[in-house]
Simulated assay, not measured.
Amino acid sequence: MNSKLRRICLVGATGLVGSAIMKHCTGRDDVHVVGVGRRRSETVPPDAEFLAGEPIDWPSLIRESRADVLVCALGTTMKAAGSRPQFRAIDHDLVRYVAEGAVAAGITHMIVVSSVGADRQSRSFYLQVKGETEDALARLPLKRLDVLRPSLLRGRRGQSRPLERLGQLTAPAVGALLFHGPLRRYRSIRASDVAKAIVSLAEQPVEGRFVHEFDAIVQAASRK
């Protein structure tokens, strides 16, 4: 058995970033990913380990994963959630619940996918909730917390979204033209690069709280 094997518990394994993480780690001998979610989907590789259950059971599944690191790639949209309370229930309450379950299981390193512009003082409800979630996680007794704040994520989603697909196709050129200096953090990024960055960060031993925006995510991805 590889003594350097890193075990990652991935909550949100069937989403865009989660699927990319699963794919990126398939066949590797230095990292093992255990997905946790309501049900397995076709985006999860056939040979990947996946623990299915309702959200109320996820803390016990996180413990069962015997992971060193918790990665939370949970997230929805206002349209999919249907209401502000439902959006908060997923992007704040459920993320915090999962994190608390990880702490109870003895996991001391968490990596969470947030959003560029996350700020509890934001006028945007979406960004306000993201900021509140980051603050809630920062208060937990974790030795290391990595917060990734990507802008538009590029990649193929399970659902067909023509307008979003068009935006993904034009985003790289628009970003290169318009987003320079402090605005670079708003550049779009491939979900596969976010996945590579997450796997790279899962191996970092330095303790503390770290926020990664566009340039830092790209740099971390280049290490993997």
Rank of each mutant, 00 (worst) to 15 (best):
L166A: 14
T76V: 09
D30L: 13
G131V: 10
L10R: 03
L5H: 05
A102N: 02
T14F: 01
A171C: 10
R38W: 12
P85Q: 00
P46I: 10
R187C: 07
D47R: 11
E64T: 15
F214R: 08
A202F: 08
L137K: 02
T133A: 00
L166H: 04
A202P: 06
Q159V: 14
P150Y: 02
A48G: 00
D93H: 13
I217N: 07
E132P: 07
R39N: 06
R88L: 02
S41C: 06
C72N: 12
Y126I: 06
A48N: 05
S160T: 15
V174Y: 04
G82Y: 12
R96L: 15
G208K: 00
A105N: 04
L163T: 12
S160A: 14
D146Y: 00
A89I: 13
R40I: 01
P205D: 12
L183W: 13
R185N: 00
R63M: 01
R157E: 06
M110D: 02
R190Q: 12
Y126K: 03
I21R: 05
K23V: 13
Q159D: 14
A80L: 15
Q128R: 14
D57V: 04
Q159R: 13
F214H: 14
S60G: 07
A220W: 11
V103Q: 01
A202H: 00
I189W: 11
T14L: 06
Q159E: 14
Q219F: 10
Y186M: 07
L70H: 02
R184L: 03
F50I: 12
E164M: 11
R38Y: 05
V194F: 08
Y186W: 14
S122R: 07
H109L: 07
V199Y: 01
G18Y: 00
G131W: 08
R154V: 15
P46W: 04
V98I: 12
V11I: 09
P182R: 03
L140W: 04
A67P: 09
P150K: 01
E203Y: 12
D29C: 10
S160M: 14
K143E: 04
G158I: 12
R149S: 06
V31I: 15
S200D: 05
V33G: 02
T26A: 14
M110C: 03
A80M: 15
K130G: 08
A73D: 11
T170L: 15
L201Q: 08
K130F: 08
M110V: 06
V34C: 13
